[in-house]
């Protein structure tokens, strides 16, 4: 009896769909990426109600030590020494775009006085729309 010669299969990894997967991931990241203008590390207060903040909003952040940083929404946030500097920055931003939305990103444990000074500066700069950045309340918090 004549035996058939066994065919040797070369081991290979199927890579035909790799490019599809790779480009799918690239498109996902391209659509979801947002370049943060403020990287201040804070523990945000938690709220039940949370609304989507418009993109390109200006930021005023207050870190746990009470240091204030401001960003007009296009450039990285910069440290300011007093709330009066928030007023001058906000007034400049509002002069360019009166509808500009401002986001207050403050650490939950900072004294109200610090946030009060920032809100007062925004009021004096004729800012109308402010968002208080927050995290979602979870069942563990209730």
């Amino acid at each position: 009896m004549k035996l058939k010669a066994t065919i040797e299969h070369k081991p290979n990894i199927p890579t035909a769909s790799m490019a599809d997967i790779a480009f799918l991931l690239i498109i996902f990241f391209m659509l979801t990426i947002t370049f943060e203008v403020d990287k201040t590390q804070v523990t945000l207060p938690k709220t039940t109600l949370r609304y989507e903040i418009p993109k390109q909003s200006a930021y005023v952040s207050i870190d746990p030590n009470g240091r204030i940083r401001v960003s007009d929404g296009t450039e990285q946030s910069a440290l300011v020494s007093a709330a009066d500097e928030v007023l001058s920055m906000a007034a400049g931003v509002i002069a360019m775009d009166p509808q500009k939305v401002f986001v207050v990103k403050a650490h939950g444990d900072v004294d109200w006085l610090k946030v009060d000074e920032v809100i007062d500066a925004l009021k004096r700069a004729k800012v109308r729309d402010v968002y208080l950045l927050s995290d979602q309340v979870t069942v563990d918090d209730l």
Binding site: R50, L132, S134
Partner: peptide, 8 residues
């Protein structure tokens, strides 16, 4: 990117 709106 969410928060509580606070109209002044």
């Amino acid at each position: 990117t969410r928060g509580l709106d606070f109209a002044l």
